[in-house]
Every structure is written in C-alpha cells, then in structure tokens.
Simulated assay, not measured.
Amino acid sequence: MFRRTLLGTAAVALGLSLAGAAFAQDKLKVGFIYVGPVGDGGWTYQHDQGRLAVEAEFGDKVETVFQENVPEGADAERVLTQMALGGADIIFTTSFGYMDQTNAVAAKFPDVKFEHATGFKREHPNVSTYDARFYEGRAVMGTIAGHMTKSGKIGYIGSFPIPEVIQGINSSFIHAKKINPDVTISVVWAYTWFDPAKEADAAKALIEQGVDVILQHTDSTAPLAEAAKTPGVIGFGQASDMTEYKPSPRVSAIIDNWAPYYIKRVGALLDGTYEQSAAWEGIAGGEVEIGEITDAVPAEVKAAAEKMRDDIAAGTYHPFTGPINKQDGSVWLADGVVAQDGELAGMNFYVEGITGDIPQ
C-alpha cells in the first residue's frame, strides 16, 4: 500500500512536471541582440525599454532574453546562432551592422523569425526589417540649432557613413540653414556607435573649432557631458531623453520609442497574423518623439520647433522637399518635389553647403 502511494505520488509529480514543461514551451521566446550596454542611456537603453514593454504587455505568454555588447561582424552570427539554438521564436537584431549576419543565420533557422533594425536586406521569408525616420527629428533639432547658434557653427558627431546617418546630417543642416543662411556644419566621424571616450574627444574637437551647437548620432551621453564644460554650448539627447543634462546643455532630444513596434510584432506572432514586413515609421507613428524643449530655449524658438514637429506628424511637411541641390551644385530635388523613400534609403551624398567628403 505504501509503495503504491509512493508510485502514485511520483506519477502525479511527473505529470505536473511534464505539464509545467509543456507550459514553458508554450511561451513565446523573444530574443534581442544589442550593440551596446543596456545602460548606455541612449540607443540600446531604448531598445531594452521596448523589451520590457513586451514583458509588461504579454506577461507569462512570453519569455524575453537578450545579449548586450555584441560586436557587429562574426561575433553577431555566433550569438544569433546560439540564441536560435536556445529556442528563440523571434529575434530582434538592433544595429545596422548585423544585417548580413541576420540573413545568414535566418537561412539556417527557417522556423525562427528575425527582425533587423535599420537594415534593408530581406533575403529570406523569415526576415523582416524595421527602421525609424530619424531625419524627421533631425529637422526639428536643426530648426532649434539654427535659432540658437551664436557662432553660426554647428557640429555633428557621426557614427558610420551609412544612409541613416547621412540623412540626419543633411536634414539638420537644411533646417538650420532655413533659419540662419550663414550657418555651417562640421562633421566628425567617430566610427563607433558607443564609445564614450571617442565621443567626448569628438565633442571637444568640435568645441575647439568654435562650434556652439552639437548634434550626435552616437549613443552615449559623453558629448553632452563635454558640452556642459563650456558655457554657451548646447546639445540634444540622442535616442533617449538624457534628462540628467536638462535644462542645458541638453535643450531637447530625439527619443526612439520602439515599444509599440515590438508589442505589435510579438502580438502578431502570438495570434497567428505575423507576416514578413518592412516598417519605416516616424513622428506620426510615434517611433520618433521629440523630448521636452527646455526653458533654455526662447519661447518663439520652441514654438517654431513644435510647429515643425506637428507639420511633419500631420503629413503637411516633408523634411526633404525641394528645391535641394547636392553638394556639387547639381539639382537633386526641384522646387516642391518630395524625396522618395528609395532615394533616402540609399542617400550617399551631402547637400549643397556642407563641406568635406563622406568617407568611403
């Protein structure tokens, strides 16, 4: 009798264990690959906030995993492979330089969904891409910059010379020049997404050139920290609000809000409506947000920037509307002509008025 009870208890325990395992397997496993640390205060931090939003939205229906500080290149393929082998159902690869590795691993795991941020290659049916129209936010920042610069010199810290970054440089300059026709822009290429020391050096070099407004397409708060050392120099939060530098030098920010996209895509996989896609949302879609414009900015400048934001959101204004010439003076967009997405996605030139060459 005693032995039978033990066997019965063991059977029940085994049944519960198997049921628990089945329940665990029913969870959707969602993976994220990050180029920087989750505490960078910028790009990676915002993607991780999106991951946390997925957990909050779906609760015990999902399990999320992530790997931070993954270099772009061969290491990314190794990490992606490990994550797929670990049972991930969908993996978000959150940096441009993961593009080829994402597609290579996707070919080996056709049942896993891969989503690549800021890229354009969808070589397999299980690969989707998503991006944000950061150039829209740059138009707003450029408007503020054009009003606020006293030296007429604006600086820009670029990460890598890819279309996404070049779009931002051009948009910032175009809109600063609309306000101040004599404005110039100097670009320093950091060749990194996240390296506080290099970013600080870039900001310092720009300030030594007389720049009093700094924009950045790198991920750390180091440029703002450097700007804070020189009275009169202002900057902007990049990807995240970077509130610790309010009200100045951080006078506003471009904020990347990935949460709605991540919730939408994970939700589609859960309910069976998931399809391959290529998303490119901006201010109107809520993926690009303009952070608080602080009181360090005059009221009339704030109003002009907010109007720019609202016009873009309403679809009544596009930041790349002609007349716009290329750097060599040739016509790119005639008067009133709006750039097509394909042209922007392949942008590899500066607009007229920017000096210097784009590295190859």
Rank of each mutant, 00 (worst) to 15 (best):
G155F: 03
A202I: 04
G137D: 06
L206H: 06
V337S: 09
Q340V: 02
K150P: 02
A314I: 03
G20W: 14
N126Q: 07
K307V: 11
A84R: 04
V233I: 15
N69E: 05
A19M: 07
G87S: 11
T94V: 05
A296F: 07
F66D: 08
G146A: 03
D182I: 08
N170A: 00
G146C: 03
W258R: 10
E281S: 12
Y34G: 02
A222Q: 12
V54E: 08
E136S: 05
L215Y: 01
R51K: 14
E343D: 13
N348T: 11
E57W: 04
E244T: 09
V288A: 13
D212F: 05
N325W: 07
D310L: 03
E77A: 14
D195A: 02
I293F: 03
H175Y: 13
R250T: 00
V211Y: 11
I214K: 05
D241P: 00
S95E: 00
I293Y: 02
P196A: 06
A117E: 05
A202L: 12
I207M: 15
N126R: 13
I254G: 11
L14H: 01
A253E: 06
D357G: 04
G59M: 11
G87N: 09
L206R: 10
G119S: 12
E55G: 02
A76K: 05
V338I: 12
L7S: 15
A21G: 08
A222C: 12
G336L: 00
T94K: 07
Y45S: 01
Q82F: 01
P196S: 01
R309I: 06
W189D: 09
I174P: 04
A239P: 07
P71G: 08
G232D: 07
E164V: 15
D271Y: 10
T143A: 02
Y262C: 09
F58D: 10
N257W: 09
V65K: 00
A104L: 03
T184Y: 03
R133V: 14
M148E: 12
G210I: 11
L206E: 10
N69Q: 07
R265I: 12
N325G: 04
T230K: 11
R3G: 14
L269C: 09
E226H: 11
R133C: 12
Y350W: 15
V54R: 12
G42E: 11
G97R: 04
D357L: 02
